[in-house]
Computed example of a mutant assay.
Amino acid sequence: MFKATRQWLWDKGINWLNAVPPADSQGSAYCNFDFLEHEVRPGDVLLFAGQTRVSKVIQMVTLSPWTHAALYVGRINDIRDPQVREKLQTHYAGSPNDKLVVESLLGYGTVANPLSAYREEHLRICRPSGLDWRDADIVVNVAIEHLGMGYDVQQLMDLARFLFPYGILPRRWRSSLFQHNAGQPTHIICSSMIARCFQHVHYPILPVIHNNQSEHPVSLEERDFRLFIPSDFDYSPYFEVIKYPAWHFSDQPAYRRLPWQHSGLAPVTSETASSSQLLPSA
């Protein structure tokens, strides 16, 4: 009885945290989803500026608008490794032609969802600059291997406590992120999951830089994957930030606004252009 009651309270709390407050439910998609959907590549990190209650808490703690991160893995048929492709199929019941992301969600764990489910969200692409396609495959495969893992609520709370000023917290409230047995190997949060994927190919996000007194004056050290938050992919100099604004300043391409001399002729536009106008007469 007590266990069932505790589970009921837990589910109610998770649903409340994942809900969008009525005052914020009008939507705020600032990106052109059609462009983003066309241009996204496997291995890209997608950042979300969420509107849920838990997203507001994450924004306040991290001082960043980015509250969630997901890894784009492409379509099921894009996965080259047959075993990995089979695992993705077992965790996604939709069309094999759907474009998918792998993400760790509070209340759901690590799951595969269609990119189209986020059409109304404010998204940003963070693309690992110069990532080899073979390493991109490894990053995608490692992400798919995380499917089915639970969401590490303890790690989320530890990370929140770690980000608060250390001295003002009682010792019993301080983060356990650096303890030997901190966290569970079967649970993880969104940004940590993605960080682990890139660490498999030693791709830097925000590495620790050491200045050495040796023949190699600078060396890099990987940060603990538990310490990453979504905005780190935005801040990282090793990721290209790609934006697709929902509104354009002009409907005409830039080259159509160049100051060409037309010898008295009206400039060519999409409405006036035709084969009879553009080809010289015989």
Rank of each mutant, 00 (worst) to 15 (best):
S274D: 03
L123G: 01
I76D: 05
S192C: 01
A254V: 07
R172F: 14
D251L: 11
G50I: 03
N212V: 06
H216M: 14
L279Q: 12
G183L: 03
H210E: 08
D232T: 06
L131R: 02
I125L: 05
R226K: 13
I189D: 02
N32F: 11
N181V: 05
V61G: 02
L9Q: 07
D251I: 08
A143F: 02
S250P: 00
K12I: 00
D24H: 10
K243L: 15
S129E: 13
A160S: 09
S176H: 09
F2N: 15
Q89H: 15
A93Y: 11
K99L: 09
F2H: 15
R257P: 00
N32W: 12
M1R: 15
L115T: 02
Y255F: 11
W66Q: 04
H262W: 12
P114H: 10
V54T: 09
Q51S: 13
L206N: 13
V218A: 10
E103Q: 07
H68K: 00
L258E: 10
F178S: 08
L258N: 05
G13D: 12
S263I: 09
L177R: 01
S116M: 10
M149W: 11
S95F: 08
E271I: 08
L115G: 03
Q154H: 12
D137Y: 07
D152W: 02
A70I: 06
M157H: 06
W260Q: 02
Q261L: 06
L63S: 14
F33H: 06
V153N: 10
G167D: 00
I209E: 11
G148R: 05
S25I: 00
Y151C: 01
E103L: 04
S236D: 02
E120S: 15
V54H: 05
M157R: 13
F249W: 13
G27I: 07
E121I: 01
N15Y: 06
A112V: 05
G74Y: 03
V153G: 10
P230D: 00
H122T: 15
R223M: 11
C190Y: 02
F239I: 10
D135Q: 13
R223K: 15
S129A: 12
H91V: 10
V54W: 09
Q155D: 13
W8S: 12
M60R: 08
N141F: 04
P128W: 03
E215T: 13
K3L: 15
P96E: 05
W10R: 09
L106Q: 02
L159D: 02
I138V: 11
P42W: 01
A19K: 13
Q51C: 12
S219Y: 14
D98E: 13
V40I: 15
G264K: 06
L123C: 11
G183Y: 05
L9I: 14
R80H: 10
C190H: 04
T186P: 00
R256P: 01
D152N: 11
D224C: 12
W8Q: 14
G13E: 07
G107K: 01
V201F: 09
P204H: 04
L163W: 00
A195P: 03
P170G: 07
Q213V: 15
G43F: 03
E37A: 14
F233T: 05
V139F: 04
F164G: 00
S104F: 06
S236I: 05
L105T: 13
R174W: 04
A160W: 08
Q155P: 08
Y151M: 08
A273Y: 09
S25T: 11
N77T: 15
I58F: 08
I79C: 03
